[in-house]
Amino acid sequence: MPSSLSGRTVLVTGATSGIGYESARQLSERGATVLVHGRTPEEARAATDRLIAAAGADAARLRPVSADFARLEDVERLAEAVVRDHPRLHALVNNAAMAAPERHTLTEDGNEIAFQVNFLAHYLLTNLLEPALTSEPGGRVVNVSSSLHRAAAIQWNDPQRIRRYSRLAAYAQSQLALTVFAADPRVTAVSVDPGICATGLLPLYGHEGMPAAEGAAHVVHLCDPSTEIVNGAYYDRSTRVAPAAAATDDRTVKRLTKLADLLVGHTA
């Protein structure tokens, strides 16, 4: 029988579908208060309503929140609201992700869109939520990453991939950056590859995937305070394995922090 998460508050980004939605459902079933993030207020509310109606979730433990991760101003607004309304945040699930588009696309902030949505927005959100995540011992961050990070390289001189763009390379770069970020010492964080699931990102991996609920179970397991974690650890589903070498290299972590701070306009 899974342990109760009653009294714990968890923010799940990208919770309107796929692994994010299923993570929110499972966390709620185990008694956690879940902040259900969607790109718009309407999407977040619809997901919350669906959790209540279809999954039987307790309405009192669900809070819709919204931010478009293609707009860093939205991320800052979300963080301010969460810190104000939930000064004790026990876990943050950085799950929201998009496949890089066929054509090279920059956000209004000037960043390649997959790099911003999949990594930079989560980097900024995590840092702004640090007061809530560290308000008491045990706060943790779970980055939903991908095995594709192993085939990636961060283009330090051209992170926006303006000179040479490939949608798969851009997506993989965003996942490597998210995995490297787990080793940042400011908050306790881990990364997890939840496995190939039948979600909107499935075309990047193949034609068949397991139910999103199975992938979400690995995410929720890492949110459980009874699960001991080590900062920067990487999990292939339920098994701790070594990530790509770059993900635990101190120089890479520091270099990425410097780059990310520059791109989000945030000084740590």
Rank of each mutant, 00 (worst) to 15 (best):
P2D: 13
S6M: 09
V10Y: 05
V10F: 05
V10M: 08
T16E: 04
S17M: 04
Y21V: 11
Q26A: 13
L27D: 00
E29C: 09
T33S: 13
T33M: 10
V34F: 03
L35A: 04
H37G: 08
H37K: 04
E42F: 09
A47T: 14
A54H: 11
A59K: 06
A60D: 09
L62Q: 08
V65N: 03
S66T: 12
A67L: 09
A70M: 05
E73T: 15
E73I: 10
R77P: 00
L78V: 06
A79C: 07
A79S: 10
E80Y: 06
A81R: 14
V82C: 10
V83P: 00
V83N: 11
H86Q: 12
P87W: 09
R88F: 13
A91E: 07
V93K: 01
M98E: 09
A99L: 12
P101H: 11
E102A: 15
T105D: 03
L106I: 11
L106C: 05
T107G: 06
E108Y: 04
D109Q: 09
G110T: 14
N111E: 13
N111W: 10
E112T: 12
I113H: 01
F115Y: 06
F115K: 00
F115N: 00
V117H: 02
Y123F: 15
Y123S: 03
L125Q: 00
T126R: 08
L129D: 01
A132R: 02
S135C: 14
E136W: 06
E136R: 13
G138L: 10
R140L: 12
V142C: 01
N143S: 14
H149P: 00
A153G: 04
A153S: 14
W156E: 08
W156S: 03
N157I: 11
P159V: 15
R161A: 01
R163D: 12
Y171G: 01
L178K: 01
T179N: 05
F181L: 10
F181W: 14
P185A: 14
A189G: 05
A189K: 05
V190C: 08
V192T: 07
D193E: 15
C197F: 11
C197A: 15
C197P: 02
A198L: 06
G200I: 12
G200K: 11
P203K: 08
G206M: 11
H207M: 11
E208W: 13
A212D: 04
A212Y: 09
E214C: 07
A216R: 05
A217H: 04
H218L: 06
V219R: 02
C223E: 03
E228L: 13
I229S: 01
V230I: 15
N231M: 12
G232R: 05
Y235S: 00
D236Y: 05
R237Y: 09
V241T: 08
P243H: 04
A246L: 13
T248R: 09
V253K: 04
V253S: 05
K254V: 15
R255V: 08
L256R: 02
K258R: 11
L259P: 00
H266E: 06
